[in-house]
C-alpha cells in the first residue's frame, strides 16, 4: 500500500495506480479529455496535468500516466497547473470552437475567447476512438495517419472499414461528436470531409 498526498489530503492506494485513478477514487476532481477509465491511458490532451514534488524536485506531469510513489506530493490546482490547463483549453478552443464539451471545459477554466484565429476542426485527436477499436472491439480499424498538425484519424486507405462490427464504441466515447452513427454504422470525419470536398469539386 502506497500513501501519497493530493492537495494536502493523504490517501492510500495500491502500487501501480496512477495519480488520476487515485484522485478520482476519493473524489478529487481533475479534468480530462483523452482519458477513459476502461481504455489504456494516452496522455495526449495533457489536461490532467498536475504538479508533483518528489525529493525536492517539482515538475508537471500528466496524472493519467504517472504512477503513485510513496510520499509523493501532488498539487492539482496550483497556479502553474491552472495556467497550463488554460493554455491547453485555449488551443483546443481555437481548434474546435463548436464542440460543446470543449466550450464547457473552457468556461470551467475561465477561458473566454482564444487569442488565435478560429479554426474549424471537429476532431481533437484524443485517440479514444482508436483505442476503442484496438482494445474493445479489437478490430484495429482506426489509427492515426500523417504527422503533426495534419494528423488525423482514419481507416486504411480512407475507405469505410468493411470489417467494422458497428459496436458504436467510437461514437460513444468521442468527446466532440466527430463520429456519428448513421444507419447503425459509424460515420467518420474523413468521410464527411470527402463528401464535402466531393461536393466542392462536383
Amino acid at each position: 500500500m502506497i500513501t501519497l498526498t493530493i492537495d494536502g489530503k493523504e490517501i492510500g492506494v495500491t502500487e501501480g495506480t496512477t495519480i488520476l485513478e487515485a484522485a478520482r477514487m476519493f473524489g478529487i476532481e481533475i479534468p480530462t479529455l483523452c482519458y477513459h477509465p476502461v481504455l489504456s491511458a494516452h496522455g495526449s490532451c495533457r489536461l490532467c496535468s498536475v504538479e508533483v514534488v518528489q525529493r525536492g524536485w517539482s515538475r508537471v506531469v500528466v496524472s493519467c500516466l504517472y504512477p503513485v510513489a510513496q510520499g509523493l506530493e501532488v498539487k492539482t490546482n496550483s497556479e502553474r497547473v491552472l495556467r497550463l490547463r488554460r493554455g491547453i483549453i485555449e488551443l483546443l478552443l481555437t481548434r474546435c470552437p463548436d464542440s460543446e464539451r470543449i466550450q464547457a471545459l473552457a468556461q470551467q477554466l475561465g477561458v473566454d475567447k482564444p487569442r488565435f484565429e478560429r479554426d474549424e476542426h471537429e476532431c481533437i485527436l484524443c485517440g479514444l476512438c482508436v483505442r476503442v477499436c484496438h482494445e474493445v472491439s479489437e478490430k484495429h480499424l482506426l489509427n492515426f495517419v500523417d504527422r503533426g498538425f495534419e494528423k488525423e484519424v482514419a481507416a486504411p486507405f480512407y475507405e469505410p472499414p468493411e470489417e467494422c462490427i458497428a459496436c458504436g464504441g467510437c461514437a460513444y466515447v468521442c468527446p466532440t461528436g466527430a463520429i456519428r452513427i448513421v444507419d447503425g454504422k459509424p460515420e467518420f470525419l474523413w468521410q464527411r470531409n470527402k463528401q464535402r470536398s466531393g461536393e466542392k469539386d462536383g
Binding site: R95, F116, L125, G148, F149, K151
Partner: peptide, 20 residues
C-alpha cells in the same frame, strides 16, 4: 511544426500557433 508527431495538444497546436 513539420516534424511534430502531433500526439500532444501543446506541441501540435502550440507550435503551429506560435509559428503563425
Amino acid at each position: 511544426e513539420g516534424e511534430s508527431c502531433g500526439k500532444c495538444v501543446p506541441c501540435r497546436e502550440g507550435v503551429r500557433r506560435a509559428r503563425q
